[in-house]
């Protein structure tokens, strides 16, 4: 069953597919770069939406998996291994393992505990990144060689890289769409909706929530591998707690537990940041230097007054 909303999402993806041609025509390669960044964060937000939106787990530590994905690529590259298959495989596998470890402890808890624990473990990984001098420590390190895929795709070619990211974004959206409508997804949403009832009809929440947590972490790890290829630079800042907050904000801004929400949220937030930092209409310094002030005000206003998110404005039935 394909809803109006999902047709709109498909249309957005098709539009994104037309961007490289348009960017080349108007000679604005900068936008290709910006949209690639938007799509990479959208993949991370899609993965977070699976547990935050559909699973009701307020994870304040999702940036951890961006970091692990990034470090998996960066560390292998540092030691001269440039195979994308290995790098990205490690990014996904290591993220899944870390999510399993963090999830095994945190998923048993709920409410404020869950929020603080996911935040704390991510901070632990952040400090770990800072303290390992071998891989750049505090300053991070350059990852000058992009992942190599036996000549299949060339990530040094901006357009090819762009289409690869777009493809992975589309695949992530489709995967989450299937997941949340499967038996597994129904249980996940049931636990969010009414845990006592779900236990009473015979489901133990723990394994389902943990599985979702691991899937989500692995998907975000892949986004991390893409991000480090995009920036060609790896720093512990990938795992900064404000990053986790931004990912959550993308999901809320776009519309929690909707398929198009994470993409819309990532796009609006990152484009807004870009605009605020380069806005020429207002006194430049006041806005550019303190754009986080406006972001903060925007965030508070969205939470207080626009709870349904941008996807709620789209035509079609609310999911």
């Amino acid at each position: 069953m394909i809803t109006t909303r999902n047709w709109i999402l498909v249309a957005i993806l098709l539009l994104l597919g037309a961007v490289p041609a348009a960017a080349a025509y108007f000679e604005q390669p900068f936008y290709l770069d910006l949209l690639r960044r938007v799509m990479i964060f959208a993949i991370a937000a899609v993965s977070l939406n699976l547990i935050l939106g559909y699973g009701g787990m307020v994870s304040f530590g999702h940036a951890a998996y961006l970091g692990i994905g990034g470090y998996a690529v960066g560390i292998l590259a540092h030691h001269g291994i440039h195979s994308g298959w290995l790098q990205w495989g490690l990014a996904i596998g290591a993220s899944a393992l870390v999510a399993l470890a963090i999830g095994a402890i945190s998923v048993r808890t709920s409410g404020i505990y869950f929020i603080m624990i996911t935040l704390a473990f991510t901070q632990m990984l952040y400090y770990l990144g800072i303290s390992i001098e071998e891989y750049g420590g505090d300053d991070g390190m350059r990852v000058p060689v992009r992942s190599q895929f036996s000549g299949l795709v060339d990530l040094n070619d901006g357009t090819q890289f762009y289409f690869l990211v777009l493809g992975i974004l589309a695949a992530s959206l489709f995967l989450v769409h299937r997941l949340v409508n499967s038996r597994f997804g129904m249980v996940l949403q049931a636990i969010r909706s009414n845990e006592a009832r779900t236990r009473a009809i015979g489901f133990s929440p723990y394994p389902y929530r943990l599985a979702a947590f691991v899937i989500s972490g692995a998907m975000c790890g892949l986004a991390g591998a893409l991000l480090v290829n995009h920036t060609a630079y790896l720093t512990p800042e990938f795992m900064n707690w404000t990053r986790s907050g931004e990912l959550m904000f993308m999901v809320i801004l776009g519309g929690i537990a909707t398929s198009a929400g994470p993409l819309l949220g990532a796009a609006v937030l990152l484009l807004l940041e870009d605009v605020l930092q380069g806005w020429s209409l207002l006194p430049r310094e006041a806005v550019r230097d303190h754009w986080q002030l406006y972001l903060g005000i925007f965030l508070v206003l969205v939470v207080l007054f626009a709870r349904r998110g941008l996807a709620g404005l789209l035509p079609g039935k609310n999911e």
Partner: peptide, 27 residues
């Protein structure tokens, strides 16, 4: 936030083997 049918179908599902089935649409 589920329909009446989905409510009951979930209870059926709870007793129809494990629910680690990730792909087919349950509805």
């Amino acid at each position: 936030e589920f329909s009446a049918l989905e409510n009951v179908a979930l209870a059926v599902q709870a007793h129809a083997g494990h629910s680690f089935r990730f792909w087919r649409a349950a509805r």
